[in-house]
Write a protein that binds this DNA or RNA. Structure first.
Length: 595
RNA sequence: GGUCCGAUAGCUCAACUGGAUAGAGCAUCAGAUUUCUAAUCUGACGGUUCGGGGUUCGAUUCCCUGUCGGAUCACCA
C-alpha cells in the first residue's frame, strides 16, 4: 500500500466509526500551500452522513484520526476543509518503502496486452512537425502503458499507395533524370518529397494555363495533363503493371531508409509495420457479411452503406457502386486483422490527428455493430494541430517545418548554449555529441508533450529552444546535479541501508515537500494513463525537479554533521534522481548524468 | 446549415473531473547565493476565467444562450 491508500483507508475508517455509515466516495486532495498540512479531506459532501455542519464534521474526523490512526499528528479546519499534518515517521517510512523498491514507479505486470498505433505517414514526403507530435505522443503513451504493467505492441500503418505517391513518381519520371539518393546525397524521403513539390508546381502551372484558355477551375484541375498522368499511374499500379510497380518499390525504398533515419534520431520504434498496399483490399468480406446480417444496406446502384442516423451521425458509404473499398472499409479490415494477429490484446489506441475524429467515431461504431466486443476498447488518441507563430502550416506553401531540419536545429542550439556556459571544457569529443543530442531532443520532446494532447498548440521555435523554465533541459540539468551528489557519495564510500533511513527522526520542510511529491508518483502515472496524457507526467517531472532545487538550494548535504541525516539525504537524492529519470523515460527523454 | 472541439495573466500553458484567495513558466522589476554543477533560488507586478443567464453551500469545470476561432459532415485518404 502506498501512502495515499493508507491515508484513505484511515479516513474511511474514521468516518464509518463516527457516523455509523461508510461513505461511498470522499475526496482527499493535496493541501494548498497557504495552509498547514499535506492532505485535505473535503467534508462538505459528508455532512449528509454526519448531520452536522461542515466544520463540526471536519473537526470530529480530525479528532478521531489523531486518536486512532497513529500517524496524523495534528489537523486544522478551514470551512469544510480538513487539513491533515502527518507525522515525519509516516513520511520516512513511506520513503523507506520506496527506497527499498527498485521497481518503484513501475506497476507489476497485469498480463494484459494493448496495441498502440502511431506515426502512420504517407510515403510521398518527409516527416514534419505534426508527425513529431504524433510520434512523441504515441511513443510516450505506449511507455505509459508499459509502466502500468501492460505488454504493448507498437505498430504503424504506412500509407504507401494512392494518388499521392503516384504524383511523386510521375514528377520523378519526367524531371528526375535518374536522380537517386546516392547521386544527389539527399535523404531518400526528402528526394521523393522534392518531386512531390515539383509535381505540384507543374500542376499549378498547367491549371492556370487551362484557366487562361477559358476552362473553369474544376475542369482545369481535372484535365491538367500531369494529373491525368498520375491517375493513369495509379490505374497501372492497381493492375500490377511491372514498370510502375518497380518504380513504386524503388521510390518507397528510398523513403523508408529516410524515415528510418528520422525514427532513429527521434528515438521511436515499432514492433510491426502494416502497409496499406497489403491491407487496402481488406474489410470487403466483413462488410458483405454485415449486409447479410442486415447491419448495412445496399442502394440501387449497388453501393453499400451504413446508417448511423439513430446514433446522431450520417449515412456512410462502405463499398462503392463498382464494389471497391473506401478508406473506412480498409480500416475495418485492418482492425479485425490486428485482433486476429494479436489475440492477446484487449484494445487499441490510434494516434491520429483530430481532423479524423469523425472517422474514428464511425469506425468504432461500425465495429461495435458488427459484434466485436473489443470495439469499446478502441481509443482514438486525438491531438490538435501544431501552429507556428507565423500561422498555419501548409505543405503546398512551403511553410511546413521539416522534422529532420528541426531536430538538427534543436541539437545545434543545445550545443551553442552549452558551449557558451563553458560546462563542457575538457570533455572528450565522443561525449559531447551525445550530450547535445540528448538536450536538443529533450527540449523538443518536452515542449511537444507538455501540452494537453487534444489541444491545438503553438510551437514557437525560439521559445522551445530556451533551456530555462518549464522545459526538458531544466529537468535534465537538475538530474545531472543530483547525480553529481550521488557520485560524490560513492567517492566518500557512503553506503545507505533501509535501516539508516528508518532511524532518521525529523525532516526539513523542503525534504517533506519533495517527499510529498515523490509519493504521488504512482497515482499520477495511473491518472496520466487514464487520460492518455504524457502532459501529466511532464508536469510531475517538473514539479519534482523544482522541489528538489528548492531543497538543494537550502540544505548543504555534505556539511551536515549528523551522519544519519547525511545518509538519508543521499538516499533521498538518489531516489528522486531515479524517479525523475523514470518519468522522463516515459516521455522518451534521456537524462544525462553530467551536463 | 448539422455535429464536435477550443477560448483562462502581456505570451505559452495548468487547475487532479464541482472545492479554499484560479496556479506555473516566459517576459518585466527587485533581491540572494558564487556551491555539492548559477542552465539555481526568493520576492513583486500581472485575472470580470470570451459575454449573458441558470443549477447549489461552492462553477474555469455542469446546463441554456450569444460571440469568436478551428475541425468535420466525399463513391478522397
Amino acid at each position: 500500500m502506498n501512502l495515499d491508500q493508507i491515508l484513505r483507508a484511515a479516513v474511511k475508517q474514521s468516518i464509518t466509526s463516527l457516523f455509523g455509515e461508510s461513505p461511498d466516495n470522499f475526496q482527499v486532495q493535496p493541501t494548498n500551500q497557504e495552509f498547514e498540512g499535506s492532505h485535505t479531506v473535503v467534508c462538505f459532501p459528508l455532512t449528509k452522513l454526519s448531520r452536522k455542519g461542515p466544520e463540526e464534521t471536519a473537526r470530529q474526523i480530525g479528532d478521531n484520526l489523531v486518536k486512532t490512526s497513529g500517524f496524523v499528528e495534528r489537523f486544522n479546519v478551514v470551512k469544510g476543509f480538513l487539513n491533515l499534518v502527518l507525522t515525519d515517521r509516516l513520511w520516512i517510512d513511506a520513503f523507506a518503502t520506496i527506497f527499498s523498491n527498485p521497481r518503484f514507479g513501475q506497476l507489476p505486470s497485469n498480463d494484459q496486452e494493448i496495441m498502440v498505433e502511431y506515426s502512420s505517414p504517407n510515403t510521398n514526403k518527409p516527416l514534419h512537425l505534426g508527425h513529431l507530435r504524433n510520434n512523441f505522443l504515441g511513443y510516450s503513451v505506449a511507455a505509459l502503458f508499459e509502466a502500468n504493467g501492460y505488454i504493448v505492441h507498437k505498430v504503424q500503418i504506412i500509407n504507401d499507395r494512392g494518388i499521392h505517391i503516384c504524383k511523386s513518381m510521375v514528377a520523378w519520371k519526367k524531371h528526375g533524370n535518374g536522380e537517386t539518393p546516392e547521386i544527389s546525397g539527399m535523404k531518400g524521403d526528402h528526394l521523393v518529397g522534392k518531386y512531390y513539390v515539383r509535381f505540384d508546381q507543374v500542376y499549378k502551372a498547367e491549371v492556370s494555363d487551362l484557366i487562361a484558355k477559358g476552362l473553369n477551375e474544376k475542369e482545369a484541375e481535372k484535365q491538367a495533363p500531369v494529373m491525368q498522368e498520375a491517375v493513369e499511374m495509379l490505374r497501372k499500379w492497381e493492375q500490377r503493371d511491372e514498370d510502375t510497380v518497380s518504380l513504386w518499390k524503388m521510390m518507397n525504398t528510398w523513403v523508408y531508409s529516410g524515415f528510418n533515419g528520422t525514427y532513429r534520431r527521434m528515438g521511436v520504434d515499432f514492433e510491426k509495420l502494416y502497409y496499406e498496399s497489403e491491407t487496402y483490399l481488406l474489410g470487403k468480406d466483413e462488410v458483405l457479411k454485415g449486409v447479410e446480417k442486415g447491419i448495412f444496406f445496399r442502394k440501387e446502384d449497388g453501393s453499400v452503406w451504413v446508417d448511423l442516423t439513430t446514433d446522431g451521425l450520417d449515412q456512410k458509404v462502405l463499398l462503392r457502386s463498382d464494389g471497391t473499398s473506401v478508406y473506412m472499409t480498409q480500416d475495418i479490415g485492418t482492425a479485425i486483422l490486428r485482433f486476429r494477429e494479436f489475440p492477446g490484446i484487449i484494445g487499441q489506441v490510434y494516434t491520429v490527428g483530430n481532423e479524423q475524429e469523425y472517422h474514428f467515431k464511425v469506425l468504432f461504431l461500425i465495429l461495435q455493430k458488427l459484434g466485436f466486443e473489443w470495439a469499446q476498447r478502441c481509443f482514438h488518441l486525438s491531438y490538435g494541430m501544431v501552429d507556428l507563430p507565423t500561422g498555419k502550416m501548409k505543405s503546398r506553401e512551403g511553410t511546413v517545418v521539416d522534422a529532420d531540419e528541426l531536430m538538427q536545429e534543436m541539437v545545434d542550439e543545445a550545443e551553442k548554449q552549452t558551449r557558451q556556459l563553458g560546462k563542457i571544457e575538457g570533455w572528450p569529443a565522443d561525449e559531447t555529441g551525445p550530450l547535445f543530442e540528448m538536450i536538443g531532443l529533450g527540449a523538443l520532446k518536452f515542449f511537444l508533450l507538455k501540452v494537453d494532447p487534444k489541444k491545438r498548440m503553438m510551437f514557437d521555435p525560439n521559445e522551445s529552444i530556451q533551456l530555462q523554465g518549464f522545459t526538458g533541459p531544466f529537468i535534465q540539468y537538475t538530474h545531472a546535479r543530483i547525480r553529481a551528489i550521488v557520485r560524490k557519495a560513492v567517492q566518500l564510500n557512503i553506503n545507505v541501508t533501509i535501516e539508516d533511513i528508518k532511524q532518521v527522526g525529523v525532516l526539513e520542510p523542503t525534504e517533506r515537500e519533495a517527499l510529498q511529491t515523490l509519493c504521488q508518483y504512482e497515482v499520477r502515472l495511473q491518472e496520466a494513463m487514464r487520460e492518455y496524457s504524457p502532459a501529466l507526467v511532464a508536469n510531475f517531472a517538473f514539479e519534482l525537479a523544482k522541489c528538489y532545487n528548492k531543497f538543494y538550494q537550502n540544505i548543504p548535504i555534505f556539511s551536515e554533521a549528523d551522519p544519519g541525516k547525511l545518509k538519508f539525504r543521499i538516499a533521498f537524492s538518489t531516489v528522486i534522481a531515479d524517479t525523475i529519470r523514470k518519468a522522463m523515460r516515459i516521455l522518451g527523454i534521456i537524462v544525462p548524468d553530467k551536463m
